[in-house]
């Protein structure tokens, strides 16, 4: 995004658009909007959707192994919600003139990304709990402001998503509480999961504002309401006391309390960029699984389309006969 371009003299349409956004109004699909705004939204909403559906994998692979029937049901309902959230978001993206198959193709061929968090493996049951607590907790911090996003369909999708997401975070924290208060092995499992998910969760908020090229423009457009660092700070402030409540240790020796906020140590951004570029532990696996499901389902989708066409032809010929 070229910020300088926006600073140039704006056309009346652009002025009108910006006035609407500045007044906290909502942009609707058929309104005029700057090209950059449309492109940014398509990218953001699509990648948000991709994150939801790729996010089904790390937890979905525990459905068959869940340690109690109650947890199994909760997990099934949660993974199902993620598919639903993907659907809401692809729908919102489609209002901008792209179609879902195109977006999926961009995902499958690596031209669009999804949240780096889902490129980490879930090696124990506690990871499922940690994802609910930390990853969904971080997602809520990101998503709640999006319910007031300037783009109407996105904001509306996010209202629905956020309602459902709070169930995800709570069930995660509850599962974590049981583990933290369980047997020594369970407790160890919980601490290990916190150790592995803490930093990736902090990275979910994106690079620091000074290094985030898209942030300023997105804030002007009302697509983003708070900076990456602000949201990350909120997450840390909310989560550290929760970890203390669980009796678990946040894996950050430099973490301090400055009287107002918890100040975390340095984030290792090299890891973030490595995972982002595709060299995280699970990037290849996630995409391969996703592509396999899509390809193996092609004959089913073709059948449904063929049947619909036949039915249409049948009712058309009946119409002629009648």
């Amino acid at each position: 995004m070229d910020v300088a371009a926006v600073a140039q003299v704006e056309s009346p349409l652009e002025q009108q658009f910006q006035a609407l956004v500045d007044a906290d109004g909502r942009v609707e699909p058929r309104d005029w909007m700057p090209d950059g705004y449309r492109k940014t939204l398509v990218r953001q909403i699509a990648q948000h959707a991709h994150s939801e559906i790729i996010g089904m994998q790390p937890e979905g692979n525990w459905i068959t192994r869940a340690p109690s029937l109650r947890r199994k049901c909760i997990l099934v309902a949660k993974v199902q919600d993620e598919a639903g959230h993907g659907l809401y978001l692809y729908s919102a993206a489609e209002t901008l003139g792209v179609d879902r198959d195109e977006l999926l193709d961009l995902l499958h061929t690596g031209r669009q990304k999804y949240s780096t968090i889902f490129n980490y493996p879930t090696t124990s049951w506690a990871d499922v709990a940690a994802i609910g607590w930390l990853v969904d907790g971080a997602a809520i911090m990101n998503q709640v402001p999006l319910t007031r996003c300037s783009y109407g369909p996105y904001a509306r999708a996010m209202i629905r998503v956020c309602k459902e997401e709070s169930f995800h975070q709570r069930q995660g924290f509850e599962a974590m509480t049981v583990l933290a208060n369980g047997t020594p092995a369970q407790r160890q499992m919980a601490q290990d999961a916190l150790d592995r998910w803490w930093w990736p969760a902090l990275m979910m908020f994106g690079p620091s504002d000074t290094d985030s090229p898209n942030s300023a423009q997105s804030m002007t457009w009302g697509i983003k309401r708070f900076s990456n660092d602000e949201l990350r700070q909120r997450f840390v402030d909310a989560t550290v006391p929760q970890a203390e409540h669980l009796g678990l240790t946040v894996p950050d020796p430099d973490l301090t309390w400055n009287g107002e906020h918890y100040v975390s140590g340095e984030i290792d951004w090299t890891e973030f960029f490595t995972v982002m570029k595709g060299d995280g532990p699970c990037n290849r696996e996630r995409i391969a699984n996703r592509v396999a499901a899509h390809d193996e389902g092609a004959w089913v989708r073709e059948a449904a389309a063929a049947y619909a066409a036949k039915q249409q032809a049948r009712s058309a010929s009946q119409g002629v006969a009648a």
Binding site: E28, P29, R30, T95, G97, D101, A298, R301, A304
Partner: peptide, 26 residues
């Protein structure tokens, strides 16, 4: 329009016929 809105008709199934196998209407 309305809630969902503005899907260019060029993205509808006709365009995908033969191309996107199994593309489905909105």
């Amino acid at each position: 329009e309305g809630g969902h809105g503005a899907v260019p008709t060029s993205c509808e199934v006709e365009v995908d016929e033969g191309g996107h196998a199994g593309a489905q209407p909105l």
